[in-house]
């Protein structure tokens, strides 16, 4: 196992303009985030809106360079990469978006959508491109005759298949999946998850799977990174995270995820309060206003990620050993299907 992506102290700061004369506000979408992604694994990034997971996706796909920090992909440091290296990197990392309706150009036919990456990056002839595109259609479970159709003639699931096909046209090594199934219905979601799993097996892809849905993440991920307001709060292997969640936020997320088991409601602790604004985050640990274990120290100091067993967690309550064991109702494994 080798790290294919290494992120060190990655930060992304946006400036929000407030009219001509006011000083622009700094929005720190991602703050000093460090993590690695191993070749062939699926790293899930979990969090609610405003936690910086989509910003992270934009940095990983080189749509936006990080404001600070260092990103190394496939052995190349992005900040110092030459133009030809960058070009190679672009075909190594590809992305699939959440909304299959917005991700495909409505004025392009499916064939043109699939061939665009080849047109820009390779010198294949039109016939070769077409052949590849048709092969790819079959690969993602569509038919060759779909080649000449426009995106609006497809259902959401089929569009997501097209988006996936476009992403793997250049034979990438890393696929950033930005909530790829959250806009889809359950039955279609299962089809797409299966397709992704099959492609990963066959092509040896590395997935960075961004999601807010913990039940999906549990199914697909090998490791999980939980983010809150721009920082990772817990990084753990998937079994460990679900069996023994450490950070209070992770526990709250697990408790809030509705389970398809009637009568489970009310047995859990609920999180109070709203998500704070990333423009004006709380001092100390960003989670302290909503955390049941917060004390004076968490309001002043910010905990760093530290290793606890297989888990990396940023929480003083864990460090100080005053966190109770997780709520039984939360970590209970699902009943086996009848």
């Amino acid at each position: 196992m080798t790290a294919i992506v290494t992120a060190k102290n990655l930060s992304q700061i946006y400036e929000l303009k407030r009219g001509m004369f006011a000083k622009p506000l700094a929005l720190k979408a991602v703050k000093e985030t460090s993590f690695t992604v191993e070749q062939g694994e699926t790293l899930a990034i979990v969090g609610e809106s405003g936690c910086g997971k989509s910003t992270l996706a934009r940095m990983l796909t080189m749509i936006e360079p990080p404001t600070e920090g260092e990103l190394t992909i496939d052995g190349i440091r992005i900040a110092e990469a030459s133009d030809s290296d960058l070009k190679r990197l672009r075909s190594i990392v590809q992305i699939v978006f959440q909304n299959p309706y917005g991700a495909l150009n409505p004025r392009q036919k499916v064939g043109a959508i699939l061939e665009e990456p080849l047109k820009i990056n390779t010198s294949l002839s039109a016939a070769e491109r077409r052949e590849r595109a048709e092969k790819m259609l079959a690969e993602v479970g569509l038919r060759p005759e779909h080649y000449g159709r426009y995106p609006h003639m497809f259902s959401g699931g089929q569009r997501q298949r097209i988006a996936i096909a476009r992403a793997i046209m250049l034979e990438p090594k890393i696929l950033v999946l930005d909530e790829p199934v959250s806009a889809l219905d359950v039955s279609i979601q299962a089809q797409i998850l299966n397709l992704l799993a099959e492609l990963q097996e066959r092509l040896g892809l590395t997935y960075i799977f961004i999601s807010h849905d913990l039940s999906v993440v549990r199914h697909v991920a090998t490791r999980v990174m939980v983010m809150y307001l721009g920082r990772p709060v817990e990084i753990a292997p998937v079994e460990e995270l679900y069996a023994n969640p450490l950070h209070p936020y992770t526990r709250a997320l697990l408790a809030a995820t509705p389970a398809a088991r009637p009568g489970r409601r009310g047995a859990r602790q609920r999180l109070t309060g709203e998500l704070p604004s990333p423009i004006n985050p709380p001092t100390g640990c960003a989670f302290h206003p909503r955390c049941p274990y917060a004390d004076e120290r968490t309001k002043r100091e910010r905990p760093e990620l530290t290793q606890h067993g297989k888990t990396m967690v940023a929480c003083f309550a864990v460090d100080e050993g005053r966190l109770p064991p997780p709520d039984a109702a939360v970590v209970e494994t699902p009943e086996p299907r009848a």
Binding site: R90, Q94, N105, P106, I120, R166, L170
Partner: peptide
């Protein structure tokens, strides 16, 4: 997103 996608493939 489709514009971003085109950028990601290097347009």
């Amino acid at each position: 997103d489709y514009v971003t996608a085109a950028r990601v493939v290097g347009a």
